[in-house]
């Protein structure tokens, strides 16, 4: 187990490092940041001075190492736009995105797992077909469109929920549903497939034969086994959702990290974009690492493979 964990950790670190190189070099292709920083009416001397001040005149590798070193210490530089430390800027916004992500994945799990179980217990029944339809529709629904439709219905027509902002829990309902609905189909399908497999397995039949109650079989034996891959999928989905919440945040004017990333991209605010891409990547890497480790712990076969 320790060997597996170390190997997996090593891979995670290597991936993180590579991602940081990619995001750094990608954004430094965009030209000389000093000119942007110097602003209007800047003379060549001004630009050179800024270049020196920010260290843009150094070789890219040196700049990269410097950036990475500082990033490791939680210093992502200063936002070109807000002239504030990127770390402060992000910390504030990240909490909104994290809240949204956690709510959305919980929503997805709370709807998808029961649906998946119900569908697996009665394959090809009305429940199964409804679940299937919901999942296919979920995959096909453009989230930005879904969000707009929700605003029209729940904010304008019914006046039940606020259309934008993040002040109270009520502000998070619609974004949660929109973002969570995106992750739901995959989780539901996996729950259903896992349950079907487990329900047909010998030990369940044995349990049933021994006269264990249906509910007991379902929850104690079957679900417990079927849920393992679902948990790891949720971790992966959570990572995707954080990176993909930009659309939802944009629609509901949630000033989260995804929205900040989108705005910063438009403003060519490189330090902010760089930091955000790296942070979102790290979340994904962390979640998958944790889920892999959890899986390996639960299922010894994985460790060997």
């Amino acid at each position: 187990m320790l060997a597996f964990a170390l190997k997996r950790l090593g891979l995670a670190i290597l991936v993180t490092f590579t991602v940081s190189v990619i995001s750094f070099s990608l954004l430094h292709l965009s030209g000389d940041p000093a000119t942007s920083l110097a602003g209007e009416n800047a003379t060549a001397a001004d630009i050179a001075a800024i270049s020196r001040q920010y260290g843009f005149d150094r070789p890219l590798t040196v700049q990269y190492t410097d950036w990475l070193w500082k990033a490791l210490h939680g210093d992502f530089g200063e936002s070109y736009y807000f002239k504030l430390p990127v770390a402060d800027l992000i910390a504030d916004r990240l909490s909104i995105t994290m809240t949204l992500g956690i709510c959305a994945i919980s929503f997805a799990l709370l709807t998808a797992v029961p649906l998946g179980v119900a569908a697996a217990v009665r394959p090809n029944s009305v429940v199964d077909r409804t679940a299937l339809f919901l999942s296919v529709a979920g995959q096909a629904m453009p989230s930005f469109w879904f969000g707009l439709v929700m605003i029209v219905i729940f904010s304008i027509k019914l006046r039940l929920l606020p259309a934008s902002g993040s002040e109270t829990w009520r502000h998070f309902i619609m974004p949660t549903v929109v973002l969570g609905y995106y992750a739901m189909p995959a989780i539901m399908r996996l729950t259903r497939a896992g349950m079907l497999e487990v329900l047909n397995a010998d030990y369940i039949r044995t349990a049933r034969a021994k006269g264990a109650g249906a509910g007991r079989v379902l929850f104690k034996h079957a679900l417990r086994n079927a849920i393992v891959p679902v948990v790891s999928l949720s971790a992966v989905q959570m990572g995707f959702m954080l990176g993909g919440s930009v659309v939802v945040e944009a629609i509901f004017s949630l000033h989260g990290a995804g929205y900040l990333a989108w705005e910063s991209i438009g403003r060519h605010d490189l330090p902010t974009v760089q930091a955000l891409i790296l942070i979102f990547s790290c979340f994904y890497i962390l979640f998958t690492l944790l889920s892999d480790l959890a899986n390996a712990w639960l299922d010894p076969r994985i460790r060997v493979g």
Binding site: T16, L27, G243, G258, F280, Y284, I285
Partner: peptide, 11 residues
């Protein structure tokens, strides 16, 4: 997989 698709494409 670690690169957030939407953000990277936007950038």
């Amino acid at each position: 997989l670690a690169l957030p698709v939407v953000l990277v494409s936007l950038a």
